[in-house]
């Protein structure tokens, strides 16, 4: 992973160095609009604002970057706004995995990541599988055995059926043959409340949301949905280590531009993001949020997204969601 970052950074730096020779290097002349698809306080908004303040703090941008909330449609509003800004060099956005999955299942969400210009993947969000502290299940295998023994009886609280927590359930159900209910709640707060109140049996949760509740002994983590153990959760096995060798549905976040971004503009943003990624403010944000740094260049990001799309198609079909594209 580290080598990949180095490579990308080197590539970006190279691009930035080479660019002026090839054609006049582009620089923003107006404030840049950073489109996020959630309202203030939502995951994407928080990431967007953290990125902007990291850039401001390190004085990396000659112009102001302004977060603009184009809320709704699980990213569809923001994606279609970006697609309307074709060729505008002063608009970029933050994408997440729903930008990939949404167009697959919703007719109205007609802008896919392939229509836009991926700039850089920045982070992968890990996840934990947790139960309440007084739950009888102490290990992942016990939980899965119980689910298999009582088909349909156990419950998991989560978000939309396209969200990562639902996808984790799908791959686990396919692997183990167990069946349990997935109960959707609109906000993270309600999902956690349902778990803490004992109304559901398990939850797939982001480490940052779970951290304090684990530390105070309210909930217990059984496994982490990651490729390798997170430094903050050294004692908790990954799904594979726990005996469940399933694909980890990724939760990527990164930066994307409107369609048809000129190469010099793209090079500018790739360089900006690479430098922002190294800034102290951003590194603190990653640490506080327990996020995995995973910087990729434009080409690698596009490949990653294409791979993710194929993987998502498979998992969604498996879980019975109708695909429209």
């Amino acid at each position: 992973m580290n080598r990949r970052i180095l490579l990308t950074t080197a590539l970006a730096m190279g691009a930035a160095l080479v660019a002026p020779a090839a054609h006049a290097q582009w620089k923003p002349t107006r404030p840049i609009e950073l489109v996020v698809h959630s309202g203030p306080g939502g995951g994407n908004d928080v990431m967007g604002r953290a990125l902007v303040s990291a850039i401001d703090e390190a004085k990396l941008s000659p112009v102001r970057i302004q977060v603009s909330n184009k809320v709704g449609g699980g990213g569809a509003t923001a994606a279609s706004y970006l697609s309307e800004k074709k060729g505008d060099p002063h608009v970029i956005g933050i994408f997440t995995s729903v930008w990939v999955t949404n167009p697959l299942v919703q007719q109205e969400a007609n802008v896919s990541m392939r229509d836009l210009t991926p700039i850089s993947l920045m982070v992968l969000e890990p996840a934990l599988i947790v139960v309440r502290a007084d739950s009888p299940y102490k290990a992942m295998a016990e939980l899965m055995d119980a689910a298999k023994a009582n088909p349909g009886k156990m419950k998991q609280s989560g978000g939309s059926p396209l969200a990562r927590d639902a996808l984790v359930r799908t791959v686990l159900q396919a692997k183990t043959g167990g069946r349990w209910a997935f109960i959707s709640f609109p906000s993270g707060g309600e999902r956690i409340s349902a778990l803490l109140g004992g109304h559901v049996d398990m939850m797939v949760i982001e480490p940052q949301e779970a951290g304090e509740l684990i530390r105070s002994g309210k909930i217990r983590a059984l496994a982490q949905v990651t490729d390798a153990r997170l430094p903050d959760f050294k004692d908790i096995p990954t799904l594979k280590e726990a005996g469940f060798d399933v694909p980890n549905p990724p939760q990527p976040r990164g930066v994307v531009g409107p369609p048809g971004m000129a190469p010099d503009v793209l090079a500018y943003y790739v360089d900006l993001i690479a430098r922002a990624n190294k800034s102290a403010g951003w590194q603190k944000f990653l640490r506080d949020g327990i996020l995995e740094e995973n910087l990729l260049g434009p080409k690698e990001t596009a490949e990653f997204l294409a791979k993710t799309e194929t993987q998502m198609r498979g998992i969604l079909t498996e879980s019975g969601v109708k695909l429209v594209r």
Binding site: P40, G41, S187, G189, I192, S193, L196, E209
Partner: peptide
Amino acid sequence: LGIPGGGT
């Protein structure tokens, strides 16, 4: 509990 009830 560290649980937010809404956007604010």
